[in-house]
Design a binder for these strands. Structure first.
Lengths: 133, 133
DNA sequence: ATTGTAGGATTACACTTGTAATCAAAGCTG
DNA sequence: CAGCTTTGATTACAAGTGTAATCCTACAAT
């Protein structure tokens, strides 16, 4: 499967959140202002742009569609989890020789970890240890 | 600063490993077969290709050069750590709402963590706790 | 001094990507 | 039934990318 671009990923993301979905559903979801209490203006997606991206995703076999009357209903062909894992591994491979700790270390150094993050990590570790000793 | 492409990143990576370096130094480093005991053939970088990428990196102000006689010696302008952190954060933001644990969880689920990784993570956590309580 | 050569500079070129506009067919509306 | 509208399909187009080839000029070697 070919690579999925950034813009394509955002469309796919909207689809993952709710599918099957029509082009309009997806456009609407993309244009929902998710942070209403913020003053940053969310980018507005243009109708035509999203449709182009949907077409490209179909060509790349990342999503499928089925005719519903004269409209299409799209669905992902790719699982979100599988995709994000692939991308994560690719980045970790390229930047950190496949080791995850240096990535986490960067976050730690920048003070990008809070108590919840640490709790979640500890929980992952203890699960791992439960299964691997 | 504009984005650095994948190919550009590999060149930059070679430069980070050893600088200042001439174009030839960099080309040679890129073409060193790092996994000699493997049968996968490493990609060979073409002279001209690398020079193009160096030029683009200069334009993007990711690297600098100084004339040494009639040759150039290149040096990174960007710190590796800063760059990899920026990229990591960008991915974690886009795919995991900024949370790092889900990324690590993906690795765990795929059995991509070993004892050393866990040890490193634990050590990071205990450092964090030392500084944050 | 002439000529080959080693670089850096410039140009090339197809493919991808972001961002749409235009086209065409199928319904909807008066 | 004849346009108007909706919606997918096709086309557009500049910028970025991967991958080089060609050009040009200062040295090196004969």
């Amino acid at each position: 499967m070919t690579e999925i671009s950034n813009a394509e990923f955002e469309v796919l993301e909207a689809l993952w959140q709710n599918y099957p979905a029509s082009a309009n559903d997806i456009i609407k979801k993309l244009n929902e202002n998710t942070d209403t209490d913020s003053d940053v203006q969310e980018k507005q997606w243009h109708d035509k742009t999203v449709k182009t991206l949907l077409n490209r995703l179909v060509k790349k076999q990342a999503i499928s569609f089925e005719k519903q009357q004269r409209h299409y209903l799209y669905s992902p062909l790719l699982e979100r989890e599988a995709y994000t894992l692939k991308e994560s591994k690719s980045l970790v491979e390229r930047m950190f020789s496949g080791k995850i700790a240096p990535l986490v270390a960067g976050f730690a150094k920048q003070n990008d970890l809070n108590k919840d993050d640490i709790k979640a990590l500890k929980s992952l570790i203890s699960d791992w240890e439960k299964n691997n000793d």
